[in-house]
């Protein structure tokens, strides 16, 4: 008997008007692992993540969280069931302070080891600047607060959308350095990343999207550079 996956996506299709942004994508993520979605700009990665989080209504397919179908569940209720998204572009509440941003994250907090104090321990700089408006923080600091805001809800599945976008390499390294700490708490991570080498370095499993479709699916160690390159750019012979 195989264990129930933490997150399972079945033949999900999502549209923006006439455009099919996600076309029949499916995957399954075992609990406690890291799953990476890579692909070029406009490949449909963010739409896929938003659809999983419930912010975008799919036209077909389903999303299962720990075996339960949550396709019809509203986004805020998915948070309460352990599925939390750290969105592209951070999306902090700019007029709220750092501390208030974290407090909003408590709205549907599940029991667990994460709370505001623990986030403040993880990012010690936040302690002194907890009353500063989030809109005044640097990009890296905002990303940290966005992750913290998601963590205080004690997610079982954390969706990370382009967390390295627009950040200095050293900041990206620091943020990715957090992943092991999250995984030891049993959290499952699904991340969208444009930086393929970054994604391959941390992921247990990787899927490459092109124009909304899965063009490559595998374990990083077994994929070759040219294979990934071909899938990423949609070159012929990429195993379509």
């Amino acid at each position: 008997m195989t264990a129930v996956p933490a997150l399972e996506v079945r033949a999900l299709t999502a549209r923006h008007g006439q455009l099919t942004a996600v076309d029949g994508v499916g995957f399954s993520v075992p609990a406690g692992s890291v799953f990476a979605l890579v692909g070029a700009n406009g490949a449909g990665k963010s739409t896929l993540l938003r659809t999983i989080a419930g912010l975008h209504r799919p036209v077909a397919g389903s999303v299962h969280l720990h075996g339960d179908d949550v396709t019809a569940t509203g986004p805020e209720r998915r948070v309460g069931r352990g599925l939390v998204l750290v969105p592209e572009g951070r999306r902090l509440f700019p007029s709220l302070s750092v501390h208030e941003n974290l407090r909003v994250g408590l709205a549907r907090r599940r029991p667990g080891q994460w709370d505001i104090d623990r986030v403040l321990d993880l990012f010690p700089w936040m302690k002194e600047r907890r009353n500063q408006p989030a809109g005044q923080l640097s990009g890296g600091e905002q990303q940290a607060v966005a992750i913290g805001r998601a963590l205080v809800a004690n997610p079982s599945v954390l969706l990370l959308d382009e967390i390295s976008l627009g950040l200095a390499p050293v900041v990206v390294q620091r943020i990715y350095g957090l992943l092991p700490a999250l995984l030891t708490t049993g959290m499952t991570v699904v991340l969208v990343e444009q930086d393929v080498s970054q994604a391959l370095a941390v992921a247990d499993q990787v899927q490459c999207l092109l124009e909304g479709r899965t063009v490559l699916d595998g374990v990083p160690a077994q994929l070759t550079g040219p294979q990934i390159e071909a899938a990423y750019f949609g070159l012929a012979g990429a195993g379509r």
Binding site: R91, F93, A153
Partner: peptide, 14 residues
């Protein structure tokens, strides 16, 4: 206030 700032972000925070 969070909803006034960004309704969707509030939604994804639960």
């Amino acid at each position: 206030r969070a909803v006034a700032d960004d309704r969707e972000a509030a939604q994804m925070s639960g």
